[in-house]
Amino acid sequence: MNLSTHTAGLGLWGLLMFVALGFEVVFASLAFVYTRRLLALRTLPLGDDLNGYQKALRKLRRCEPMSRDEWNLAERIIDIRRSPIAYSVPAAFMTMGIFYIFGSLEYLHGHTPSERTFLGVIPMFTSTNLIIQMLKTARLKKRLAKATVVDANQPSPAPLTPFG
């Protein structure tokens, strides 16, 4: 008497699960290489300051005058986030969620999926958010060429008053 609930072979979900696992290994390896490259970069002035990256990008988005250090920092952030290998990080999260969903569906063998099956959607939403944020930053490349860089040695222009 065989009391096992498992079938002898893999179904469609099992095959798709192993395909997702293959992609996960590739994307996770690329993400590892990418993060090692990032860790090897030297730090820039303002890069270690609290919210330094956000301040530089905010000034660039609002077309405010920037110091040379802020401009260099914004340029590096944009170059880092525009790199094609940078998208391997959200791709690894996406395939992790896909792997989990397909694995759960294979384990169920055609039974009705439960809420647990769809926990894999959480990393998929996370990766979608990461991709959107990276694309937003990548679009700032056009503004970087038009950005106003103020030299620290030059005096700032006098503020305009409403009565001249």
Score class of each variant (00 low, 15 high):
M94W: 04
V149T: 12
L15Y: 12
G103S: 07
S88D: 04
S114N: 11
H111C: 14
M17G: 08
Q133L: 14
M124T: 02
F18S: 04
F102Y: 09
M96K: 02
R82D: 06
V33E: 05
E70F: 00
D79W: 10
Q54S: 04
L16M: 13
A152R: 06
Y100P: 03
L108P: 01
A20K: 06
S127L: 10
L130H: 01
K136N: 15
A86N: 08
S104V: 05
N72K: 08
Y34F: 13
W71A: 09
L21E: 06
L60M: 03
R36I: 04
P157T: 09
L160I: 13
F32M: 14
D69Y: 14
S88I: 04
N51H: 14
F102T: 04
F125Y: 06
A20D: 07
L119Q: 11
Q133Y: 06
I85L: 07
K146S: 04
G120W: 11
M17Q: 11
L39G: 13
L135R: 15
F18D: 02
S29Y: 12
F93Q: 07
A91S: 09
R42Q: 11
L144F: 07
Y100D: 10
T148A: 08
L105P: 12
I80G: 05
I77W: 02
M94R: 05
G103V: 09
A158R: 08
T112G: 00
L60N: 03
H111T: 14
L60P: 05
V26A: 13
N129R: 13
F32Y: 09
A31F: 02
W71S: 01
M66L: 11
G97A: 11
P113A: 12
A31T: 12
M94N: 07
F102M: 09
M94F: 07
R139F: 15
Y100H: 14
D49E: 14
L60H: 04
L140E: 01
P157M: 03
S29V: 15
A86R: 05
D79C: 06
A145D: 15
F27N: 03
A147Q: 13
S83G: 11
F125N: 00
I80R: 00
T128L: 14
L130W: 09
G110T: 01
F18L: 10
G22Y: 02
R36F: 13
M134D: 04
F93T: 10
L119F: 15
Y34P: 03
Y87G: 06
K59Y: 00
P65Q: 10
V150A: 12
S83N: 14
L57K: 05
S83T: 08
L130R: 04
I80L: 12
L108C: 08
D151R: 05
R139Y: 02
A28L: 14
P90N: 13
V121T: 09
T126F: 03
T128F: 10
G120P: 06
F93N: 03
A40M: 09
F99W: 15
F102V: 00
L130G: 12
L50E: 07
V89Y: 02
R116P: 00
A152M: 12
I77G: 06
T95N: 05
L130Q: 07
